[in-house]
Design a protein around this nucleic acid. Sequence first.
DNA 1: TCGCTTTTTTACCAATTGGTAAAGTGACGA
DNA 2: TCGTCACTTTACCAATTGGTAAAAAAGCGA
Lengths: 212, 212
Amino acid sequence: MKDAGKSGGPLRAQPAVKRSRIQTRNRKRILDAALEVFSAHGFRGATLDQIAAEAGLSKPNILYYFDGKEAIHVTLLNQLMETWLDPLEQMNPAGEPLEEIIAYVRRKLDMAQAYPRESRLFANEILQGAPRMGPHLEKRLKPLVDEKAALIAGWAAAGRIAPVDPRHLIFSIWATTQHYADFEAQVNVLMPEGGVFPGAATYLETMFRRML
Amino acid sequence: MKDAGKSGGPLRAQPAVKRSRIQTRNRKRILDAALEVFSAHGFRGATLDQIAAEAGLSKPNILYYFDGKEAIHVTLLNQLMETWLDPLEQMNPAGEPLEEIIAYVRRKLDMAQAYPRESRLFANEILQGAPRMGPHLEKRLKPLVDEKAALIAGWAAAGRIAPVDPRHLIFSIWATTQHYADFEAQVNVLMPEGGVFPGAATYLETMFRRML
DNA sequence: TCGCTTTTTTACCAATTGGTAAAGTGACGA
DNA sequence: TCGTCACTTTACCAATTGGTAAAAAAGCGA
């Protein structure tokens, strides 16, 4: 549909426009507030008033910095995609296969712990059919997954890890690690009080080690 | 807060009121339409107009059958909880441990395939902090999980399966199976066209067998 | 300090949305 | 045939929500 991007490529993270100190600060405030609200209520569930209150700015002031609710959401998603891809990108073809995969699991779990809001923002978007991220998934995520899946398949073919379907392996890593962020409300009910992440780290490392 | 339940216990699935044929039919239509809409857009993202259109009824007519938007949502969630718990309840203490767990994975994956909307409805609710399900989780889910966690812990202590934290094991089963329903939009982008479920079934069975 | 630009506020909208009142329609037993 | 009760529609609201116009207030370089 409408791409609305003027020029400079549809996937640019930040346009090359110079921003004043105030703009930098307020855009950051808005994006942080929006992350809080969108991740907790989803796109339609979030209101500009909530974001404005959270950011400590008036609603029209927010619309002075962003073209609209959707623009804020898209900006967040674009920024997030890079952060999200990073742990997988770091998987090193020259490394020891099993350790590379375990380290990836570890990084993913650390991200779920450090950035639960980002994880939930992402989950909300995908859950609802990725209406604002479809192209992004195709252009950024898919090539990376294809690359790393081939890498893992190579490792398996060489007998350096047990045979696995690399894509399902990746899915299971995503699912198990992000679960602790996305389903936090449920986890908190079911796990005796206290940090679940140490236990999760031990469990997941054991699980993937035994499997591979 | 307000329970709004008159009598008969707060967790009754269907009140003992007799319903006419028309009521039975239209309530079913509404709930099915609501499942479609809520699972795709979340609670706030869904509108009564959408549900009405999907159900082929007028908005006021829908409000003749249900007390409001929230009542429809709560009804769905309550019904769903039973269906959702069922596969875990079937885990048999007298069975062969490994096979019982694998069979549970299998049932869970089958449910993700057969009822993706239900899975997404549930995921939406938990993602947003389970605002309408907290008590339900405490009263229905937690006792069951406690029971089955103890069962699995017993199996592990007896050396009949490899040692594992039973709760994290359960989380990983939920996460990996539901992933195929909840993140369907992403999975579809990343997996070569065609049914992913057969491959998922093979992968997950291998994974949990190797681990235990 | 002046004058210009950037930022913020105030006062509004129009559309959407959950919900209601009340009139209308239809089925069915007496 | 009529009355009654279950169901459905029509016509509305009041509140919320994304967004705008324009005036007011800061900043800020010269």
